[in-house]
Amino acid sequence: MPIDAFLKSIEATNFATTVRDSIWMFPIIESIHVMSFTLVVGTIAVIDLRLLGVASVQRAVQRMTQDILKWTWGAFALTVLTGLMMFTTNARVYYHNPFFRTKMILLVFAGLNMAAFEFTAGRTVHIWGSGPSVPRAGKAVAAVSLVLWISIIFMGRIIGFTTHPGAVAPPTPGVNYDNFLAPPPGSSNGNGGGNGAPNQPAPAPPKQ
């Protein structure tokens, strides 16, 4: 499959190799990813809840979007950048992971949902935006948006349980750092997880 060859070449880049071989780089990139997307989702939720009439109903929608969305997009750019960084470290595994794929599809839906707003209720926002009542299409878009973003969070979280990014330190023999409660190696059912790190060390590049 040609795509696999391409993904393999991404994994072989200097950047990907450096991140993979570092103990701290992947966790820090992942932390920045989480920080920025909490701002993405948090700020989007402020607007969605306004459209749904739950909060900030006395504020003009145009004013809020003008105030907030530039920060949302800035945080989104940082989220995408850090997401791409993580992707390079183990591109083939992510590409073939069903939750990763679902997450990407949901992101596309979130974009289409925004576009749907622009083509429906968004066109007349200057008429209804200052008042508390919102057209049905606007409310529908807001509800779909909240559901999509929460689903995207879940998909993102479960990717960490189902992939082996190879970005962790090689474990000391006999110690399972990722799941202390797991039975020792060799016994059945050692696959506990419970964190974002791979459950087992990847067939990782040998370190040091």
């Binding site: 989480v34 909490t38 989702v41 700020t43 989007i44 939720a45 929460i150 979280r157 479960i158």
Partner: peptide
């Protein structure tokens, strides 16, 4: 566990926003 972690992340998103 991933489900509860996801709710935890939604919570921090609300706080951060």
């Amino acid at each position: 566990i991933p489900g509860v972690q996801s709710i935890h992340i939604v919570g921090i998103a609300v706080i951060m926003g």
